[in-house]
Simulated assay, not measured.
Amino acid sequence: VRLSVHPNNISVSQFSVTLVLEAHNVPELSAGVNCTFENLAEMNGLVEGNRIKCSSPAEKEMPRIIVDKGDHQIVQLYLKSKETGLAFANTSFVFYNCSVHKSCLSCVSSPYQCHWCKYRHDCTHDPRTCSFQEGRVKKPEGCPQLLPAERILVPVNVVKPITLRAKNLPQPQSGQRGYECLLTIQGNEHRVPALRFNSSSVQCQNTSYFYDGMERAVFLWS
């Protein structure tokens, strides 16, 4: 018995999606079949020749995908005879969770239909939920990022701006906060207003810093 299903993966944020299964070399199905997702859910299957239509699990039955287990979970989808109650065919089915990705590069590098909303810093299977159409990212080359730079030296207690090279920095939209730099110096966080010159350059505004000896700072944008 051969069994295939289309689609063969859906997001954990999609519920009761119609799935079409194609079965080959199967026994007589006139008595009816049920579709079973392991121990998650079981529902009636609509037989149309060698095709069976089933619904994916409802919201309350959807598996919870744990962050440390990755962004997907593989379960077995079984066809069960209503006459005997026994499974006679099965195939693998994938539930994926885009929201476990916390960076643009991680999100769009997923093998599943994940999109990055760069104005919300959020990974989703549905790009329509992004705040602005121009804020949708699907490919790594579209991700906002700071580019590697030569070592930047900042003297103690000297007021100085810090200019950073970047890529794809979005223009803040109406009602959104601007940019800021978050510097971690000797374990303490310092937030400094930043000015976006264009999509490839941002500057942490004039500020002085105090630290003992050589200190390394980490720059983030928000």
Rank of each mutant, 00 (worst) to 15 (best):
Y96I: 01
K53E: 14
E38D: 11
T84P: 14
N90H: 13
F93H: 00
P27W: 03
L21M: 01
E59F: 15
F95C: 01
A87E: 04
K69F: 15
N39F: 12
A41Y: 15
D68C: 10
N44H: 05
A31R: 00
Q73E: 14
G45N: 04
A31E: 14
S81T: 09
E61Q: 01
P57M: 06
K82R: 01
S30R: 04
L79H: 03
N44F: 14
M62C: 05
A41P: 11
E22V: 08
E61M: 11
M43G: 10
A89C: 05
F37D: 07
A41M: 12
F88A: 01
P63F: 04
C35M: 05
V75Q: 07
I52S: 03
A31D: 13
N44A: 03
P27M: 03
H72M: 13
A58D: 15
F93S: 09
T91W: 08
T36I: 12
Q76F: 14
G49R: 00
F95Q: 09
F95I: 06
I65S: 07
E61T: 06
V47W: 11
P57Q: 00
L79W: 09
N34A: 14
V75C: 11
A87T: 09
K82D: 10
E83A: 11
A87F: 06
N44W: 13
E61K: 02
R51K: 01
D71S: 03
V47S: 00
A41S: 12
V26P: 10
H72F: 15
L46V: 15
N90M: 15
Q76R: 04
A31V: 03
N90F: 15
K69I: 09
I66N: 03
T36S: 10
I65M: 05
G70T: 01
H24F: 12
E42W: 12
I74G: 02
V47G: 01
P57N: 05
G85W: 13
F88R: 06
Y78D: 02
A89M: 13
V33Y: 07
Q73H: 13
F93M: 06
A58L: 14
D71Q: 00
S56W: 13
Y96K: 00
S30P: 11
R51L: 09
S30C: 12
S81M: 06
E48H: 08
D71M: 11
A89G: 02
P63T: 10
A89F: 11
S55I: 12
F95L: 08
F93K: 05
N44Q: 09
T36Q: 15
V67S: 09
E83R: 04
F37P: 13
K82P: 03
L79C: 00
R51N: 04
N34M: 09
K53D: 04
S92C: 12
L21Q: 03
T84F: 14
M62A: 04
G49V: 03
G70S: 00
V47E: 00
E38K: 05
T84G: 02
I74D: 14
A87Q: 09
E59Y: 15
S81F: 04
S81G: 09
K53Q: 08
A41Q: 08
L19P: 07
F88I: 01
K82V: 00
G32Q: 03
E42R: 06
H24A: 11
E38T: 08
L21A: 02
G70R: 01
L29S: 04
F93Y: 03
